[in-house]
Every structure is written in C-alpha cells, then in structure tokens.
Design a protein around this nucleic acid. Sequence first.
DNA 1: CCTTTCAGTTAGTTA
DNA 2: TAACTAAGTGAAAGG
Lengths: 258, 258
Amino acid sequence: MMPLSVKLNPAISEAAEVLEKAVRSRRFVVAVGDCRVDYEGRASSTLDWGDRVTMIKQDGSVLVHRPVGYEPVNWQPPRCLVKVSIEDPGALVITASRNQPRETISIEFREITLLATGNLHDPGEFALHVTEEQMKRAILTAPELVEEGLKPLEAEKSLGEAGFTDIYAEDNRGNLVVVEIKRNAATKDAVLQLQRYLETLRTTVGRPIRGIVAAPQLRKGAQPLLESLRLEFVMVPPEKCFMVLKSRRDMKLSYFLT
Amino acid sequence: MMPLSVKLNPAISEAAEVLEKAVRSRRFVVAVGDCRVDYEGRASSTLDWGDRVTMIKQDGSVLVHRPVGYEPVNWQPPRCLVKVSIEDPGALVITASRNQPRETISIEFREITLLATGNLHDPGEFALHVTEEQMKRAILTAPELVEEGLKPLEAEKSLGEAGFTDIYAEDNRGNLVVVEIKRNAATKDAVLQLQRYLETLRTTVGRPIRGIVAAPQLRKGAQPLLESLRLEFVMVPPEKCFMVLKSRRDMKLSYFLT
DNA sequence: CCTTTCAGTTAGTTA
DNA sequence: TAACTAAGTGAAAGG
C-alpha cells in the first residue's frame, strides 16, 4: 500500500496544514487527540473535551469514535463537505456539512497526538451470505423447504398500497399461499405484515388463501397472534438455505464443467 | 492524554507482540494495514485483501473500516474476547468472538503500516437534544404546539396489548384525543400504530375520539391512509419543541436565580 | 434475560 | 429523487 504520512504530537498549525492538504486530495485521515464536537441538523448534540479517534474517509465520511462502544458518537455520511480551519490559535476545527438534510458537525481539537494520512487501496470483494434475499432465492429454488408440493407462482407479487409479498404460491390442494420470509426470529410485526397482505388479497381473490411465516424461529410473543389470525409458521434454518444455494452453485459449476 | 505507542511498518512478529500486550491491558488499538476478514455468526461473510483501518476499543469492540462508507465492513460489539496469534509466519490474525449469539470475526494481516496503542481518556459528557422523548415533553409543556385548547390527561396511557399512547388528551369540545409523536416524517407505520390505539380505546370508551399524528412532516405514502382512517396530521417542527424546552430551561434557571 | 421500540439510524432497491 | 424495507442492524427501556 502507499505509505502513510504520520505525525506525532504535531503543532496545531502543522496539523492544520497536513489535514487541509489531505482533505483537498481526498486522502484517508486518522487523527487521535483531545477534542470537542458539536452537531446541528436533524437533532443537535454537544460532546465535551476528551480523547477520541476521528476518521475522515476518502468519500468524505467523517466518524468520531470514543474509546468504547460500537457506534461513532458523532459522524457525517459520505459526500459531505469537509473544511479545516484554525479558530483560535491553538484550536484546530474540522467542519463537515451536507445539505438534504442540512447538517453540520464541527470537531475542535486542542491537542493532536497522532495524525496519519494516506491513500488506502481496498479492492477486496465483500460477500455476505444468507441474507433474506438469499433465503427467498433458496425457497424459490427448493419450495420443499417450506412445504412439500408448494408451487411458487410469483416472487414479490405487488399488492398496491399493501406492499409486496415475499413469495406467492399454490399448495397441492389448490390453495393460494403467501409466504413471508424472515432471516431472523419472526416478530409480531412480521405476522401483522403477512396478515395485511392476506386481507388485501382476500378482497380480490375468491380462492382460499393460507399465510405462512418462514423463518428460523418464531418469537414467543408472535405465537398467540399467529394462532389467533389462523396463520402458520414453518421453521426454515438459514443453514439449509445456504446448502440449497451452495448445491445450486455446484450444479451450475458442474453444468459448465461437463 | 497518555502518550500513544506508535509503530510504523512493524514486522509481523513485533506487531503481534505489541498487539498482544495492548489487548491484554485493554488499551485502545488503531491498526492500518493490508488484511482480509472472515465473519461467521448470525450470517457469514468474507472480505478479500485490501487496506483498512481496524480499531480495538477499550471495551473490546472491534471495528474494521474500509476507506469509504459510514459503516464498518466487519465488527464485533463490546465485551467480546479478542485474541492475537501468528498463523503462518508473516500472517498476524486477530480473532474476536462472543457468545449469545455465537459469533467470530478473524482479521488476517499480511502487512501492517501503522500500529498505535494507548489509553484514551474520555470523560466528556455527550448530550443529544430534541429526541422523540423531548418532543413529548415539549408538547406536554405547550399543548398548543398541537392544537389550541388541548388539555393533556396522561402521558403514555397504557392500552394493554396495544401498547402505549404517546399523549392522551382532551380537546376543547370534549373529544378525547390520542396524539402519536414522531420526531421524523411520519410513516404509514405511525398512522397504523395510532389506528391500533384508537381501535383499542373505542372498545372501552364511549366518547368520540380523535387521532392526531404530530410530526415535522407526513410522508406522502401515509397521507391517503391517514385520510381513509379519518385521522389528522399536525406539523410540529423540532425547532419549536427545542424553543419550548429551552424557554422552560431558562425559566427553571431564572427560578433558581431569583 | 427476553421483548419492544427507537435511531441524527444507514444502506439498498425500485417506482 | 422519493419512498419503502432490511440490517450480522445497535442501544435503551421495560417486564
């Protein structure tokens, strides 16, 4: 990778110079130091003096991280305008703003311990397996994951106002079946969503319709609701979906190999 | 602040030593380098080689940031177990795992450009203003934000199964009023939630009941639903709430000062 | 500990 | 661009 420019305990004026240049040429910045942060936008916040890690990313994202916790305490999303200035002598201020919504954070440093800037080269592909989308593909590929004899008619049937069903199918006794897929334990909300789909469909379709929640698990609180609405739950473990997708990939592979 | 220990382009073995010690004594770690990441847990993911910034926080959180985007590409929440090991010579691996749910990420470095460790001292207080809670307090303080003559009866009236209303009030014609507050543009969901409250209330209360969504804005898609359910929308800008809370704070202050 | 709800949610997809 | 929905959502509050 390209070498980083690293300054230890730079003077505020020197830090400003380096930062200014890095921001202008859209380089990555990591700054560790004693700062305070103000935010004004959808809400507003203040954060008093303390040691934090600030990152300015190559797309203009700005993140301020405290020494604990998963989330940044303050931030600005990609494509914001970053400016560097010296307000008082001895006070370096980074301002990051965007419109729509109009938001600004300003980070004021009174001491910078570490300032590293450089170009990070990251071409690596990221792949996340078994999302809800993939569960749907798996069920469309192998409907027996939900029920033997299930025949998918449409994925994502539109119901106008009410939204989209995950899977719209037919069982082997001629009932229509709406399948609502969740990759996590299904909540009441999932059950209510399915119910809304069914209500909408029943106003336009004369045939009997079943509603099935397909998920790895059903939340305790969702069980009574499910029963009272006469809906069904089928456990579909993500691993099985993964196997289906994997075997499909393997088939494809063998198809190309033979 | 306590000085950072900073290594530039350390050998993998030296980096492992420094990291191991830092993790053991729960110090903050920032590492910039060429790595790949695997994750296995609720889902699973792989990330190929590239330059990233990895932080290990003092509470055990682990974050891997690509050079773009707000979110970490991989992470582990606070209180996970972090281990450092050398797998192949020239390959440093950081493993972070937790139970409940059982999850692991492993970060394999083949090159480390910058390794900084130290104790960050961050006592600064963080204050976020005008949350939904504060909007509620503002409306309870100044009900005219919603409607002239509105008299709050209860905040958070419990409706059993159906949840809690934000504000339960009475208008100047003797109607009951349920106010649903959103700090952002109100969605269909907000309208449906309000509708559920009203349905529940109407089974037990004989008086006419109005339902009002109080929010800075109403989402377009929520408008027809609102009308069809005969509910109302009142625009309540967060700035006005902020002013009400501010003036209340000022009053309190003057109360203490006089 | 489990469940519910909110978030300055962010991010992705589609009309 | 706006709206809608999922997320390895995370975090807080309540039972």
